[in-house]
Computed example of a mutant assay.
Amino acid sequence: MYILTRIIVVLVLALIALGIYVRLAPSYAEDWHDLPNGLEPGEGAGSAVRVVSNEGDTLERLDAIIRDTPRTTVLAGSVDEGMITYITRSALWGFPDYTTVARQGGQIVLYGRLRFGKSDMGVNAKRLDGWLARL
């Protein structure tokens, strides 16, 4: 019984440490404020890409919608710059997802991706689709 109690205590402490790390790990703009070449609309295991037409104030309207999303902050960029990267954290654990939205020619590209793990279970795609539905 004593060994089982110790194992449970160690597991609980490990979960607490993971939760603290996930919430406090620094996010550097130079690592995330980027839009890789060759992005195609679709979904990967931990990412999603959407492309919409840039009709005048599309980026401005998207920026307002995204900033209104709970647990979402701006990491870098601005509407004037033409590219903005946001961090949206999950409610329970605070896992960060990064979304970069940028003007490219006559289009707006939205690129959402996770930081930790290998699969986001479609969360980034759902988030992007929700923002675009509000647009």
Results as ranks from 00 to 15, higher is better:
Met83Asp: 12
Ala91Ile: 03
Gln107Trp: 02
Ala45Pro: 04
Val49His: 03
Leu135Ser: 04
Leu110His: 06
Arg23Val: 01
Ser119Asn: 15
Asp57Arg: 05
Ile3Glu: 08
Gly46Arg: 13
Ser27His: 12
Trp93Gly: 09
Leu15Lys: 04
Asp57Glu: 05
Ala76Gln: 11
Ser47Gly: 11
Arg127Trp: 12
Arg67Asn: 07
Gly130Thr: 07
Gln107Lys: 15
Ala64Ser: 11
Trp131Gln: 08
Phe116Val: 08
Arg127Pro: 00
Leu135Tyr: 10
Thr85Leu: 13
Val52Pro: 04
Leu35His: 00
Tyr21Pro: 09
Ser27Thr: 04
Leu114Asn: 06
Arg113His: 14
Glu43Leu: 10
Ile16Lys: 06
Gly94Leu: 03
Leu11Met: 10
Val51Cys: 05
Pro70Val: 01
Asn54Pro: 01
Arg103Gln: 15
Ala133Glu: 12
Gly44Cys: 15
Val10Pro: 01
Asp80Gln: 05
Asp97Asn: 12
Ala125Lys: 14
Leu132Ile: 05
Ile20Tyr: 00
Ala125His: 04
Arg103Gly: 12
Ala17Leu: 10
Gly112Arg: 05
Gly44Met: 14
Asn37Phe: 06
Gly130Ala: 08
Thr58Cys: 00
Val51Pro: 00
Ala45Ser: 00
Arg50Ala: 10
Leu114Asp: 07
Pro36Phe: 15
Thr5Glu: 06
Leu13Pro: 04
Ile8Asn: 02
Gly94Lys: 05
Thr69Val: 02
Asp120Trp: 14
Arg23Lys: 12
Gly117Cys: 09
Ala48Arg: 06
Gly46Glu: 13
Asp97Ala: 11
Asp129Cys: 06
His33Leu: 07
